[in-house]
Structure formats: structure tokens, C-alpha cells
Simulated assay, not measured.
Amino acid sequence: MGFGSSDDTTTKGRKLLEILNVRMVGAGCRVLVLSHGFGTDQSAWNRVLPYFLRDYRVVLYDLVCAGSVNPDHFEFHRYTTLDAYVDDLLAVLDALGVDRCYFVGHSVSAMIGILAAIRRPLLFLKLILVGASPRFLNDGDYHGGFEREETEEVFAAMEANYEAWVRGFAPLAVGADVPAAVREFSRTLFNMRPDISLFVSRTVFNSDLRGVLGLVQAPCVVIQTANDVSVPPSVAAYLKAHLGGRTTLELLHDEGHLPHLSAPASFVHVLHRALTTTQ
């Protein structure tokens, strides 16, 4: 959503806030942005949000691919790379008048945050990257966790029977034996239109942001669980070694790709430390 004149910018900004279900809640003077990952929407933060409302004004929004957004707004020709999602994030923050913020990005949103911080370094005080991966595919000495053939099998399964794929994938992604988290993740996956879900999955698995990590200036905290089916520990170590900003690694003893759903208490503890520790 490109911007023209100031009036045009204001109108488009307001429209985008409506499309992406943007909310700003809380009473603090600092701004905290919570950006969800693939297959969820802003409701993924429900178990985490109450702990930060006193000290932060919290911005929540839905990625345009989320099932909570009218699928008519998903422009396949535009969202072929993560850059369009970065445009949306920056437009949301501009429309809200946010000039400095802490950013928490889960999964694909971690990469969206990295790209946004490269583009607008003064906007981001700190990046907290949860279950982040600059590249999911293995490449020489780099172990991203997946061979291309494996991803093609995943895409074929999604295309053949989306419901069956969700029922198999959700428990694997959650990892831990937390039925409520599996149900919640399944619900938001089912809310996505299957063709959009498949398209976004292809976009994410074909992304490779390793070459730009060094351009990040903001301090970063990488939060990695003990066992994540989507992101092996080697990826977290790679991020720590290659991000340009001063980077710390927080290891959660909990399992799974969605600790904010499956282990909110320990996740809140680590997130609070990540936000308040000076670097």
C-alpha cells in the first residue's frame, strides 16, 4: 500500500488499520509491537498480553494472510516476498504515530521485523525474535532444518487435503503435550484460506535473509525453545553470530514452535527479561 500526498497517506493509513484489525492497548509510555507468525493471528498473544498492559502501549495487528483478515485483501502478486509485509508493518506504525518501539516477532514476523529495522533503524529500540529463521532450507554447511524435497512434500500435502495436513501439522508444531494450544493453533490454521496458506508457506520457505542480517543495528534477543520442529538450535546460533546488532540468545526449556501458546508463563518471564535488560 504505497503512500502519496499527506491526505492520501492518512486515508490509506486509516484503511490499513481497519483491514489488519489493528489495536493499541495498555497504559505505559513505551510502545511494544506484537507480530504473530504463520498460521496464527493476533489472538496468539492473548495469554501473554495481560502481563504487559501496565508498562506498555501494545500494538497488535494481523498479517494480511491471517484468517481473521478478509482474504480479498491478500494480493498474490504483491506478497511474493516479505517486503510487502514490511511495508504493511511500517505503514501501521506510521498511521499510529509510533516513532520508537520494541518489536516482538514470532516465526515469519521475526524476519519481517529484521527487514523493517534495516529499512528504518531509528524506529526499533530492540528486536525480540521468537522461533526465527533466516532460511529454512539446508544449504551446504548451513543447517536450516529442511531439504527442498521435504518442503515440496509438505506443499503437496497441503494442496491435496488441507484439513488433514492441519490435523497432522498442528500437534507437531506445538510440540508440547498441550491440547488447548493444539486446538487454538488448529483453529487459526483452519481460518486461513488454503490457497493463501500454501502461497505464504512457499514464500516463507523460499526466503533467504542470511545476507542482510549484518545490516541490523538494533539490539536483538533470539528466543529459542529446546525442541522446535521448524527451527533447529543451529539456526538460533547462526542468528546470534550474524546479526549486526548486539545479540543475546535466550533458551527456553519448553518444547515447540509456539511457546507463547503452549508455555505462556515461562515465555512471559523470558520476554520480560528480554525487554528490560539493557544491552
Rank of each mutant, 00 (worst) to 15 (best):
Ala170Leu: 04
Leu115Ile: 05
Asp177Tyr: 08
Pro50Ala: 06
Phe155Asn: 02
Val104Asn: 05
Ser186Ile: 09
Glu184Leu: 13
Glu18Trp: 06
Tyr142Ala: 12
Glu250Leu: 14
Met111Lys: 00
Ala180Asp: 13
Ala173Met: 13
Leu275Phe: 11
Val48Ile: 15
Asp72Val: 14
Asp41Gly: 09
Val31Leu: 08
Leu16Trp: 04
Gly144Thr: 11
Thr188Pro: 02
Cys101Ala: 15
Gly244Arg: 08
Thr276Glu: 10
Ala156Lys: 15
Gly144Pro: 14
Val204Ser: 08
Phe103Met: 03
Thr188Leu: 05
Thr248His: 09
Ser230Leu: 15
Val178Trp: 01
Gln217Phe: 03
Ala265Trp: 04
Ala164Arg: 14
Pro134Leu: 14
Val216Cys: 11
Leu32His: 03
Leu60Glu: 01
Val222Thr: 07
Glu153Asn: 10
Val98Tyr: 05
Val216Met: 11
Lys15Val: 02
Gln217Met: 14
Glu255Thr: 14
Thr80Glu: 15
Ile223Thr: 06
Asp177Gly: 05
Gly256Ile: 14
Phe124Val: 09
Leu198Lys: 10
Gly245Asn: 03
Pro171Tyr: 04
Phe74Thr: 00
Leu34Trp: 06
Phe76Val: 12
Val59Ser: 08
Ser35Tyr: 00
Ser68Lys: 06
Leu249Pro: 00
Asp55Ala: 06
Arg120Ala: 14
Leu96Asn: 02
Asp88Ile: 10
Phe136Asp: 07
Leu17Asn: 04
Leu127Arg: 02
Gln42Gly: 05
Asn70Phe: 02
Ala84Phe: 04
Ser262Gly: 07
Val130Tyr: 05
Asp208His: 04
Gly97Arg: 06
Arg273Ile: 07
Asn138Ile: 13
Ser262Pro: 05
Gly2Ser: 13
Asp8Thr: 05
Asp254Ala: 15
His257Trp: 03
Asn191Tyr: 10
Leu122Gly: 10
Asp41Thr: 08
Ala274Tyr: 02
Ile196Gln: 08
Leu53Met: 07
Phe103Cys: 01
Ser230Phe: 12
Arg202Gln: 14
Asp208Cys: 04
Leu49Pro: 00
Ala237Met: 13
Leu82Pro: 02
Met158Phe: 05
Ala91Tyr: 00
Leu172Gly: 01
Glu184Lys: 10
Gly245His: 02
Ser262Val: 10
Ile128Arg: 01
Phe205Asp: 09
Arg47Thr: 08
Ser234Trp: 10
Asp55His: 09
Leu63Ala: 12
Arg120Gln: 14
Thr151Arg: 11
Arg193Phe: 09
Ala180Val: 10
Asp94Phe: 13
Lys12Pro: 09
Ile19Cys: 00
Gly175Gln: 06
Val86Ile: 12
Thr248Leu: 13
Arg148Glu: 14
Ile223Asn: 02
Leu16Glu: 03
Ser133Glu: 09
Gly256His: 09
Pro232His: 11
Leu172Trp: 04
Ala218Glu: 09
Gly211Tyr: 12
Glu152Pro: 06
His253Phe: 03
Val200Met: 12
Val174Asn: 10
Val25Arg: 12
Asp228Cys: 09
Tyr162Pro: 00
Asn138Thr: 13
Gly168Trp: 02
Arg167Val: 00
His257Asp: 04
Gly244Tyr: 06
Leu53Trp: 00
